[in-house]
Structures are given as structure tokens and as C-alpha cells.
Design a protein around this nucleic acid. Structure first.
Length: 942
RNA sequence: GCUGAAGUGGUGGAAUUGGUAGACACGUUGGACUUAAAAUCCAAUGGCCUGUAAGGCCGUGCGGGUUCAAGUCCCGCCUUCAGUACCA
């Protein structure tokens, strides 16, 4: 009876689906365990072999935890809003919902073939109105909240209104807009409704603001910072420019400190935590204000080095700084304007690429040093960024290399003072001295002789006395822009009365996407929803009505933007806990039971996007008492990317002749990538197949070496455009899903990037065949009730121990080897014992579930193997009466001695010395001592 | 520049965390079975030295060090990959 994996796999996949084998219950006597994959975006290209890597790993873990007696939640769904479906809609006119539905069907079919133990009854799709209803609901909750710094949490906006009504905003300590004007209770009560709304909007956790955004003209939308790579859009690689627009923003900055602190409580890799720390970018220092001579204005700067304030010889403002125009003197006006114009012309990208060139110009104005009262010239320079801190710095050339370079560059100008050295015993003739730890301040009045720490404290104290500064912590993390000028996203549950945003009552959600004729922006530049005929809100009937009914009395215009891709993915883990719930995003009981995700597996491209935003929303929902957990993902593992191995042919320039790799250096050639399926395992190209593959190769000539055409290989990201995509379906057909699962794990450590190479799959495939043979005696099932031998038990328990350790450490690659060794040993030992083989197949079942179910069934079990308990490791089967001890002299001579295990340290020493060979080896030497490490190693020092 | 990860045979990768480096697999070579191929099975496979065997020497990016003992620990370099960047 041969191993017919196609029949076996189809049988058990059908069985699991029909019996709902992996359906998780929301209550159980068993302990809970929640294993989650980052849900995929269902793209038109389908799955390639890289996608399932993480899913296989999490599936192994989920199946293992079930064997270990846990109630496991292991769901899957789709992040189904997004750009590709919309772009496809723009090109073809097909509604993105249809595209998405087709893609999801294809994904599901591919996923099912790999035999995952997903609980599909909990499937979610972010583009499903029953799902995005709750995304809209969370948006409304954010709108109805403000951040109370005193309580250090988000609170209901109603609380804030109550405070305003009774005492104004003087005592309110909130995270809000910078430019809030103080008002009393009396002021508040006399405000018009619109004025009140305007004030409240500045406090809300999601707010409308005129913000400078990253606008991508080609994509016709704004992008978040993490959607831009090297100054161009992550998707498509189009240029991005800065533009002012009124947009919804999320006040994630309110959570900066908690997002930072929370990292200490979760089990993520150091590199990922570090990325988030950098992104949040906390820096502790002081804010200092400088008075400007002959002006009423003041300049506020942020510095991490208030201790160096006596070294501040000039100030630099960003060219975009609002004071530049006001303070520039008439003599300098022409220079300054020319400079600003020149910097504005340079794109963000050019500015980033070119950090070496120093440029700047003097404004003609002077500020007053807070302590020395000396005039400090004010310059502008593009090394100061408008977007960070206050867009102005006090320049301390002796302590900061950029200030130093700037000062040196302009040293010849009379308006650039000489560099003052405020460090004791330090030479600054070549470069600035930035080492805080070694700093002793000099030349600085009351700070002389102090170290960095003390000087900082003293400087802040003195600044506070003057009313010109205070300690301040600055974060790089900016509020997140939440509007997209797109069709295929969640509509905002927002309509506008007199220009002020109003939330649609929760009872009338979801606000579903309207139909549009085209998916492009309107001729007037409005987002695609501007094309919808039925897109107005009747506030009396609480329903969507036709645009021509807008009367601004009872029918109002609806928001035209949609939410960004990260909206739905920021909270979906909680929806799985109670996916069908119509009344709440998930019931309190379900969330109380499942808490948060115990293990989250996905790619590391979401380090600063999805993983930060979902932590933010989780913390917010906890503040408002909808959740009891503070972090969504307790443990996180980033699986490495599986790379493609592209195949390259070499065309002689200007001809249709292709030369084999070994001959290419004799010609001037161009590289062309061809489909990897045309290449065999020894890099040889199937020339006939290539001719058929694309018309351009129909009548091509090929120059061979040794009768073969050898292609060049290049390891790069798997992508349709490189023709290097390998998809799992073919593998499943040829070798089976169990082979695919084992092989993906066998490729190497989970977290490491690695190229796909189908060649090695025969190894794991023949392992499965051997496994099958182990349970069969020729044509019959060969398991017997014979007693296991000592060796059989040893093999089994060795395997249990190793596999258990491997799974707990996520070293799935090494346990595949362990299985191979076990099967080889048991085959050699001619093991047919039921006791052994039954345990073995449970060990293997998380990795290769189909063959495991089949053999389990043949062993006479009626229930799925997933209900079987994981075999218990027993040390006694590994214990031997003797042990081999390697013995070395000065690390040179080596031999092994077999000694009884129960010998004491002294007895071992004696045995070693008495040993004939030892005497031989030691001949002519006087051993000083024998080192015995009990149970481990014996060393003799001669 | 900074941060993080890594560097082991022809290849992917093991190595109980300081204890016989190269498990397991691919590939290669030889053999068995076949008319043949595929499949399967067996054997060899880090390099070098000695006619063979026995044996020896060298070997974990490079150079030092600690230790009876280093792929593993310490110091100094080199290289690769990933993230990030004028953050005051």
C-alpha cells in the first residue's frame, strides 16, 4: 500500500471542514491560547510559497497547543480594503468588491490545500460592512474622547464639556492643539454652538486639522510617513510632495510615552522594539525661549543639552519658520528670500540625499542670550527641520557637530561669532565635543565645574527662575493622518453641518460605501466619493439620501474621504473573539476569556505601521473600558521572507541571440529575466519551452555551452515582474501539502530570510514515504501489539524531548531533522510496536497533519488526532548505566572512557588515573590534578 | 553615521549555550536492482599528508586574548543583510 498523499490530503481536509474540527469555543475548562497570523491582503496574484511560511509555523504551534490541552483560537481573515483592487477598478471599471471577492475565493482555495487548522467560522473581512461598522464605531469613540494628562488616559468628551461649563479650560491638562486660547466658564457658556464645537475639536482624539501632508499626485492620495520609502511612495515608487490639506488626524502622540513603556511588558524581538523606540523618538531636554532684540516676538527652541547654553553663539531657524519673515532686516531681505525660494524648490528627497552641503543665510536679527544678555545672531539654515521640535535651535558649535560645521562654514562672515569652548580640557579645533559622559562644563558662569547631569539640572532651574525655559520631553512621533482620497476604504460616519463634523448615530451604522460610476477623483479634485449621486445624510430620517436633496437644514453633505488601510487592521484581533456579534464589536465575556493574542506571527514590514497603530487603539479601547488588556500582542515573531531565485538569460545587444552564462563575457549583453519554471535543477534552460513562453523568443537563436543553455541566477524578492514566483499549488499536487509544510520549515530558521529552492523537497518527501513504510508491512498495515524494546523507547523519548523543546523555541527546522532520525532508527530497529508508533505520529502531526490523521485512523482511533494528548517525556528511558567521557590533557591528547554513571567525582578521578591508556598518555608527565565535572566531562591536567 | 542581526563544507543548515565541529537534508561519486530510465536501497563525501590501512596535521570571516578546553566568552578589525537618518 503506497503513500497516496493526494487522496489522503483531500480526505482529511474534507473531514476537518465537515466536522468543524478546529472550531474554538468561547468558554472551556481548558486554558486558552490565541495564535494569530497577520491576515493577508488578497491580491490578484494569489499566494506564493512565501506567504504560507508564517501560517505553517503558527499552525504547528496551534496544533501543538491543542495536543497540550489548550483551548486554541486560531482564526484567519482578510485585510480586504486596499489600493490594488481600486487601481484594478480604475483600469477595468470592475467594482473592487467583486475583485476582492474573487481574490478571497482564490486565497481560500489555496489555503485549504495546505491543511491549516483555522477556525473559519470566525473569518473576518475588513471590507465587510458588518466588520467596518465597528471600525466606524471606534472612530466615533475616538471622536468622543480626549486625553487627560492628569489621569494619563483617554476620557469621554462629555466630561470635558462639564469642566468647561463650570470652570473653563485653565485647569484642564490635556493633550491637544498647541494654540488653545484660555477661556473661563463664562466665556464658554457664551460661546455659540459652532464656537464650542471648534474648541472641542482641538481636544478630540481624532480631529480635523489643516495639516501639511505627504501628497502623492500619481496615486491621488495622501500617504502616512511609514508609507513613504526614500521620499517616494512605498507602492508604485511615485514622488511625494508636501501639501496643506484639511484632514482627519489621530492623536497618537498622546500615547507616545505609554507606547514606549508598554514595550517593556511584551515579548517581541529587540530589533522590533528598537524600531518602535526610534519611531517614537523620545528625547529629554528643555525648552528655552530667547527674546528677540527690537521685537516683541520670542523664539522657542528645544534642546537636549541645556547644560551647554553658555556655548550658544548663534541661533538657526528652519527656512519655513514663521518668524523668519517678521524678523528679517531690510538689508538681509533679498538674501533671505532668495534662500527660502531655493530651499522650497528642492524636494524633500533632494534635501535628504544631500546632507553634506551646508547652506544658510543671516536674517540680520539678534536674540538675547538668557544669561549673558549678549546679542546672538539669528540665522536660517535647512539643516534645521521645520517638522521637529520647534523648528529652531540654539546653536552650540562646540558641542554639536552640525552647529560646528555651520559655524566653520560661515566663519568668515562678521555675523557669525567665533566658537566658544565651554568644556574643560577639551580640544575643539577640529571637531565638536559631544560626549555627555565626559563633560565638565567651563567658561559658563554658575555652571562651571559641573558635569552634564548637574549642569542640566542647574541650567533648567535657572531658566525657570527667569521664566525663560523648563524641562521638556520631545517625541518624534507625529499625529497620524487618517484621511485617504480613495474609494475602496471605510467611509467616515461623518456629515457636516455648517462646516462642523457630526457623527452619525451608532444605531444607524454601518454607513455603507455608495456606488460610483468611476473610481477616480472628480474633475474638481474631490475624492472618488464626490462622484456618488446618493451620498448625503438625512439627519431626521437617519439615512443616506440623494445629493440633490441637500438643504443644509435636515439633509447634509457626507464626508468624502475614506479611512486608511490600517484602520481595520488596528483592531481585528478582537473581532475574532466574537466575530458574529451584531450588538458589540465583541462581547465582554468573549474578550474577558480570550484577553489578547498570545502569539502573533507576521512579516516585519509592519514594525512601525500596523504594530504601532494597533497598540494605540488597544490602549485607547482599554482607557474607555471596552477592553481589559493594554497590549494586543503578547509575543510576536517575524518570519523571514522567502525570496525568489530569478533566472537570467543574456541577449547579445541589438540581436535576438541569447548566450549561455559561461559565454556572456565574450559579448556585450543585456540581462532578461525569464520564468523560473523553464529552468531545471541544474540551472539549465528548457529552450523549447522558452520559445513557447513569450513571442519574442519564438525565433530566437541560442548559443549553448556543452549542449546546454545555462542561466544566471539572482536571489531577490518574489514578484510577478521578475517571473520568479513559485506558488504552493503545484508543490501540493506533486509532493503533497505535508511535504510542503515540512519543507518550508526545513528550509532554515523561521525568522531568517531565505531563497526558495525546490530541489531539496525530495528529502522531506522521501521522509514521509519512509514514515508511511514504518507503519506498513508491504501491502498491509504492520503495527503490532508487541512490547517496545529499550532502544525503541529511547528513540521515542529522545524525540519527544527534542520536539517539545524545538516547538517551544520556534526552532521548527531542527525538529524535522529529529523526525527523520527517529524514523531511520525505528526502521533499523524494525519497530512495529503500537505504543511507540502511536506516540510518534502525535509528535509529527502538527507538522504533517494529513498523514498523521490517516495513520491515526488506521491505528483504530475514531476521533481526530488533534484530540490526542502530546506524549509525556520520561527521563528514565534515556538514562544509561554508562556514559562516555571525553578526556583531554592540556587540550591535546584526547580519548573517551566509558564509566559507570553512579561514580562519584573521586571515583571517576581514580578510574581515569588507573586506566592503562591514561598511564600511557601521561608517560613522562606528572599530572597535577584531574578535573571532574560531574555528569559531564573529565579533564586531566598534566 | 547610528541601531539591529549575521558570517560554519559544493549548498540549505545542526551543535544540549564553554566540552569529540559539520547532525539532518540536498548535491556529487561509486555500487545494487533494471533492456533502459524513473523510483528504491547500500556506501563514500571539510581540506591536506603518508602507496593502502592505522595514524597525523589544518580547519567555524581576519588578528590577538582568557581557558585544561573557544564556532560559542573578551578586545580590535573586515564583510554582508535589514531598519533608520540633518531629531537639536
Amino acid at each position: 500500500m503506497s503513500y497516496d498523499f493526494n487522496i489522503i490530503e483531500a480526505r482529511w481536509q474534507k473531514y476537518w471542514a465537515e466536522k468543524n474540527t478546529f472550531k474554538a469555543e468561547n468558554n472551556s475548562d481548558k486554558p486558552k491560547y490565541y495564535v494569530l497570523d497577520m491576515f493577508p491582503y488578497p491580491s490578484g496574484a494569489g499566494l506564493h510559497v512565501g506567504h504560507p511560511l508564517g501560517y505553517i509555523a503558527s499552525d504547528i504551534y496551534a496544533r501543538y497547543k491543542r495536543h497540550k490541552g489548550f483551548n486554541v483560537l486560531h482564526p484567519q481573515g482578510y485585510d480586504s480594503f486596499g489600493l490594488p483592487a481600486e487601481q484594478y477598478a480604475i483600469q477595468t471599471g470592475q467594482h473592487p468588491a467583486i475583485t476582492t471577492k474573487e481574490n478571497i475565493a482564490r486565497y481560500r482555495e489555496q489555503l485549504d490545500k495546505i491543511g491549516f487548522s483555522f477556525d473559519w467560522s470566525r473569518e473576518v473581512k475588513t471590507s465587510d460592512p458588518n466588520f467596518y461598522k465597528w471600525t466606524q464605531w471606534i472612530f466615533i469613540e475616538l471622536f468622543n474622547s480626549w486625553y487627560d494628562k492628569d489621569a494619563d488616559k483617554a476620557r469621554a468628551i462629555d466630561d470635558l464639556e462639564t469642566v468647561f461649563t463650570s470652570e473653563g479650560n485653565a485647569k484642564v491638562n490635556a493633550v491637544c492643539d498647541e494654540n488653545i486660547t484660555p477661556f473661563t466658564a463664562g466665556d464658554w457658556n457664551s460661546f455659540s454652538s459652532k464656537e464650542k464645537q471648534e474648541v472641542l475639536l482641538k481636544y478630540r482624539l481624532t480631529y480635523l486639522a489643516e495639516t501639511e501632508v505627504n501628497w502623492c499626485p500619481q496615486l491621488g492620495t495622501v500617504l502616512a510617513n511609514d508609507e513613504i520609502v526614500n521620499g517616494v511612495s512605498e507602492r508604485g515608487g511615485y514622488p511625494v510632495i508636501r501639501k496643506k490639506m484639511t484632514q482627519w488626524s489621530m492623536r497618537i502622540s498622546a500615547y507616545a510615552e505609554r507606547l514606549l513603556q508598554g514595550l517593556e511588558t511584551i515579548d517581541w524581538t529587540d530589533s522590533l522594539k528598537e524600531s518602535q523606540r526610534n519611531w517614537i523618538g523620545k528625547s529629554v531636554g528643555a525648552s528655552v525661549t530667547f527674546a528677540i532684540n527690537e521685537h516683541d516676538e520670542i523664539i522657542e527652541v528645544f534642546t537636549t543639552r541645556p547644560d551647554t547654553i553658555f556655548g550658544a553663539t548663534f541661533m538657526t531657524l528652519a527656512p519655513e519658520h514663521e518668524l523668519v519673515a517678521k524678523i528679517t532686516t531690510p538689508e538681509q531681505k533679498a538674501d533671505v528670500e532668495a534662500y527660502i525660494e531655493a530651499t522650497a524648490k528642492r524636494s524633500e528627497r533632494e534635501r535628504m540625499a544631500d546632507v553634506k552641503t551646508i547652506s544658510g543665510v543671516f536674517t540680520g536679527a539678534y536674540a538675547e542670550h538668557p544669561f549673558t544678555k549678549k546679542p546672538v545672531p539669528i540665522w536660517i539654515g535647512d539643516y534645521v527641520l521645520a517638522g521637529y521640535g520647534t523648528g529652531a535651535v540654539m546653536a552650540v558649535p562646540c558641542g554639536d557637530q552640525r552647529d560646528y560645521d555651520f559655524a566653520k562654514y560661515f566663519a568668515a562672515k562678521p555675523s557669525m561669532p567665533a566658537i566658544t569652548n565651554i568644556f574643560e580640557g577639551v580640544d575643539i579645533s577640529e571637531e565638536a565635543f559631544a560626549d555627555k559622559e565626559k563633560t565638565i562644563i567651563a567658561n559658563s558662569d554658575f555652571l562651571n565645574g559641573l558635569n552634564y547631569k548637574k549642569a542640566t539640572k542647574t541650567a533648567i532651574y535657572e531658566l525657570e527662575k527667569l521664566g525663560q525655559g523648563q524641562g521638556k520631553t520631545n517625541y518624534r512621533l507625529r499625529d497620524a493622518v487618517f484621511s485617504r482620497q480613495r474609494y475602496w476604504g471605510e467611509p467616515f460616519p461623518v456629515y457636516y453641518v455648517d462646516g462642523m463634523p457630526q457623527m452619525i448615530d451608532v444605531a444607524h451604522l454601518p454607513l455603507a460605501l455608495p456606488e460610483v460610476e468611476k473610481y477616480l477623483p472628480t474633475e474638481t479634485g474631490e475624492p472618488p466619493l464626490g462622484r456618488a449621486d446618493v451620498w448625503a445624510w438625512d439627519a431626521q430620517k437617519n439615512e443616506v439620501v440623494s445629493n440633490d436633496k441637500i438643504d443644509h437644514k435636515t439633509v447634509f453633505p457626507l464626508e468624502l474621504n475614506t479611512m486608511p488601510g490600517w484602520a481595520g487592521s488596528s483592531w481585528y484581533p478582537f473581532r475574532y473573539m466574537d466575530a458574529g456579534n451584531d450588538a458589540e464589536f465583541a462581547s465582554a465575556e468573549a474578550m474577558q476569556y480570550w484577553q489578547n493574542v498570545d502569539l502573533y506571527i507576521g512579516g516585519n514590514e509592519h514594525a512601525t505601521g500596523h504594530l504601532l497603530y494597533s497598540r494605540f487603539w488597544t490602549k485607547f479601547l482599554k482607557d474607555r473600558a471596552y477592553l481589559t488588556v493594554d497590549e494586543p500582542f503578547k509575543k510576536l515573531i517575524n518570519q523571514g521572507m522567502i525570496l525568489g531565485t530569478s533566472a537570467i538569460v543574456y541577449r547579445i545587444s541589438g540581436s535576438n541571440t541569447y548566450v549561455s552564462k559561461g559565454l556572456k563575457d565574450q559579448y556585450e549583453t543585456e540581462e532578461l529575466r525569464v520564468d523560473v519554471s523553464l529552468i531545471n535543477n541544474s540551472d539549465e534552460l528548457n529552450v523549447d519551452a522558452l520559445r513557447k513562453w513569450q513571442p519574442q523568443f519564438n525565433d530566437a537563436d541560442f548559443e549553448l555551452e556543452d549542449g546546454k543553455y545555462i542561466v544566471g541566477r539572482e536571489v531577490e524578492k518574489m514578484s510577478k515582474r521578475w517571473f520568479n514566483v513559485v506558488n504552493p499549488d503545484g508543490i501540493c499536487e506533486q509532493y503533497g501539502a505535508d511535504s510542503l509544510r515540512l519543507y518550508e520549515m526545513f528550509l532554515g530558521p523561521l525568522e531568517q530570510a531565505k531563497p526558495w529552492n525546490t530541489a531539496g523537497i525530495t528529502g522531506v518527501h522521501s521522509f514521509l514515504k519512509k514514515l508511511w513504510k514504518l507503519y506498513h508491512d508491504g501491502e498491509t498495515f504492520g503495527v503490532t501489539d508487541t512490547e517496545p524494546t529499550k532502544n525503541d523507547l529511547k528513540t521515542l523519548h529522545k524525540t519527544i524531548k527534542k520536539v517539545e523543546e524545538d516547538i517551544e523555541n520556534f526552532s521548527f527546522n531542527t525538529s524535522v531533522s529529529t523526525f527523520m532520525i527517529a524514523v531511520n532508527e525505528l526502521t533499523a530497529q524494525k519497530c512495529t510496536s503500537r505504543a511507540i508508533l502511536e506516540s510518534l505520529i502525535v509528535l509529527i502531526s502538527p507538522y504533517a497533519p494529513h498523514i498523521a490523521e490517516e495513520l491515526w485512523c488506521k491505528l483504530g482511533h475514531k476521533e481526530s488526532i488533534s484530540t490526542a494528548a502530546f506524549p509525556v517525556f520520561e527521563e528514565k528511558h534515556l538514562v544509561e548505566s554508562t556514559k562516555q567521557y571525553p578526556i583531554s590533557f592540556n587540550g591535546k591528547m584526547r580519548f573517551t572512557m566509558e564509566l559507570s554513571l553512579d561514580l562519584s567525582k573521586d571515583e571517576i578521578e581514580e578510574a581515569v588515573m588507573a586506566h592503562e591508556k591514561t598511564q600511557e598518555q601521561l608517560a613522562g608527565r606528572e599530572p597535577k590534578k584531574v578535573i571532574v565535572v560531574p555528569g559531564k566531562i573529565v579533564n586531566v591536567v598534566g
